[in-house]
């Protein structure tokens, strides 16, 4: 079943077309990688799905419902979580508070006014703390975390949301090789139970995690298929990978 479907989606800034007639279908439980050179429209595509930018044409369907033009928080509540390209965490709050803010189905201010409990006892909280390796940093202010830890914290926050669809914009940017490997393990363990769309440049990481890869170029679909197919695709080599192939 298609969880997410983009139909003939387009985005223009004035006269400049960023995305033009882009189609994408992502099935439940799938991990889809979005590739493309700089300016191909990958991040814009995520902005359009999550409502951060308004589409100039086309439609977005999530779980069979048209979510085109809804505001960000409404789309999030439908079950779409988002990790940003530049890691965004609450720098002045502690790590545990960061996760606490992300947690919970109640998002209205009045229901939260009388809510004092911590989710520390909740199973998922423990799992995520373990998964992201932040156990001994819980009372640290998030602004003091290393870059890799900040990335993991944000991934942890998105997981804490318990979203059906996770949009991950460059989750391994700035990570060491070891950290990248750890992240790929996290992602592989999410496959099946979660649906993910990952924008990434690191090919070894993509090889590690991807089922199907979608390649974008100049706001359009260039190729789509499993990694073996993409690596040998002539068009992809020309615009993105260079003639020497994938490193």
């Amino acid at each position: 079943m298609a969880l997410l479907e983009l139909r003939n989606v387009g985005k223009k800034y004035g006269d400049f077309t960023v995305i033009d007639g882009f189609n994408l279908t992502v099935n439940k439980g799938e991990l889809r990688c979005l590739l493309g050179p700089n300016g191909a429209g990958k991040t814009t595509c995520m902005d359009l799905i999550s409502g951060r930018q308004k589409l100039t044409k086309g439609q977005v369907f999530f779980q069979g419902e048209d979510i085109t033009g809804e505001s960000e928080h409404v789309i999030v509540r439908r079950g779409i979580g988002r990790k940003f390209q530049v890691p965004a965490v609450f720098k002045e709050l502690t790590v545990s508070d960061n996760l606490e803010v992300a947690f919970g189905k109640k998002k209205g201010p009045f229901s939260n006014m009388l809510h004092f409990g911590r989710s520390a006892g909740v199973k998922r909280y423990k799992e995520i703390v373990e998964l992201t390796n932040l156990g001994d940093r819980m009372n640290t202010v998030a602004g003091l975390l290393s870059h890799g830890e900040t990335q993991w914290l944000e991934i942890g926050m998105v997981l804490m949301q318990d979203a059906n669809l996770l949009l991950m914009d460059e989750p391994t940017a700035g990570m060491t090789e070891k950290e990248t490997y750890k992240t790929s393990q996290i992602f592989n363990s999410l496959k099946g139970s979660h649906t993910l769309i990952v924008v990434e440049h690191d090919m070894s990481f993509v090889r590690e995690i991807a089922d199907i890869i979608t390649v974008m170029h100049m706001g359009k679909l260039l190729a789509e298929g499993p990694i073996s197919e993409i690596e040998t695709n002539r068009l992809v080599r020309e615009v993105y990978l260079g003639t020497e192939g994938i490193h």
């Binding site: 965004a88 965490v89 998002k107």
Partner: peptide, 13 residues
């Protein structure tokens, strides 16, 4: 206060 955009993308109005 720290990051309104992040809060918005955690589902808060």
């Amino acid at each position: 206060r720290d990051d309104a955009e992040r809060a918005r993308f955690l589902g808060y109005n």
